Simulated scan of single mutants.
Amino acid sequence: MSIENNTIALAGIFQASELVRQIARQGMLDQAPFEASIQSVLKINADSIMDVYGGLSGIKTGLQILCQQLGNETKRNIEVMQYVLGVVFLERKLAKRQDMLAKIRIGIEKSVAETEIYAATHPQVVEQLANLYTQTLSTFDYRIKVSGEQRFLENPHNADKIRALLLAGIRSAVLWRQKGGKRLQFIFSRAKILRTAQDLLGMTKNLS
């Protein structure tokens, strides 16, 4: 297991979760990490885990949030952690459903085809990904409950972004699991993950 690859995938889950929190609480989100997270869903065949997010800079927000959640008690956000754990739990349920995995892959391939006409974060592409989440992962008996301002949650464009981001979180959770990720790491490998995330975050500063 590469702790670096494991941490990058974990940062992908934290990034998607933080963006869900932003849009649910503020009605807006940071565009650059949003684009990177959506692109990570559409990148079916990537050369490396870093390539999934368009390079290390694409996962910068996720690394920042991961460092805050694991290393700074005063900056921890319980909602973000709830979304992270919810995504990890859903991914485990999804892993047992080959039929649903196949349906998700077909749906993602359709969205990839749409990006030949539209940008990855175009409302039509985001809506397609959101509908795919609704038709598959939302059918499980466990659902991720998103907390926020009702006026933001009731906005259909915001709702689409939230569902598309949860799908992005699942994509990262699949990668994390493939790279040896386990829930117990949050307890037993916390310090190692934090150090790796801090090192990777330092590398993103050299890229900017």
Rank of each mutant, 00 (worst) to 15 (best):
Y118K: 08
I78F: 04
Y142T: 07
G62L: 07
N6F: 09
K93A: 15
L153D: 05
R105C: 06
G107K: 07
G107E: 11
N158H: 13
I144K: 08
E127D: 15
K161H: 09
T139S: 13
G55N: 06
V80H: 07
A173L: 07
L194H: 01
A119Q: 11
E91R: 10
V112Q: 04
G54V: 13
A173Y: 10
V41G: 09
A173N: 04
L184N: 11
P156C: 08
V41L: 11
G148H: 06
S37V: 04
K43R: 14
K60G: 13
A36D: 02
I59S: 11
Q185S: 07
E35Q: 12
Y133S: 07
M81H: 12
A191P: 00
L184H: 12
F186W: 11
P33E: 09
R183D: 00
L167P: 02
L42R: 07
Q98C: 07
A119G: 04
V20D: 11
N6V: 00
R195G: 06
L10C: 04
S57L: 14
Q124G: 00
G86L: 13
L94H: 01
L56A: 10
I78V: 10
Q82D: 10
M50P: 00
R143M: 03
M1G: 10
V52D: 06
R151G: 00
V41F: 09
I162S: 01
L90G: 01
I49P: 01
I13M: 08
C67I: 14
M81I: 08
A24N: 04
K75A: 15
D47T: 02
G54S: 14
R171N: 04
N45V: 13
Q150W: 10
E116T: 05
I13F: 03
S189V: 01
I144P: 04
K96M: 15
Y53R: 03
Q15T: 05
G169L: 01
V125Y: 03
A36M: 03
Q150M: 11
A159Q: 12
V84M: 10
R21P: 03
L66P: 08
S37N: 03
K205D: 08
Y83M: 03
W176F: 09
D99F: 06
F14H: 13
P33L: 06
V174N: 05
I23L: 04
D51G: 05
L101P: 02
S57W: 01
C67T: 14
A32R: 11
E114Q: 14
L66I: 09
A95T: 05
G148P: 08
R171P: 01
R25K: 12
S189K: 15
L207T: 06
N206C: 00
G12E: 01
V112R: 06
V84G: 08
N131K: 15
G55K: 07
D199R: 15
I144E: 07
L200G: 05
F152W: 15
T139N: 10
Y83E: 02
D51M: 10
L165V: 09
F34C: 10
E149D: 05
L167H: 02
E114F: 10
Q64H: 12
Y53N: 05
R171K: 12
F89G: 00
N5V: 05
R105T: 12
Q198W: 08
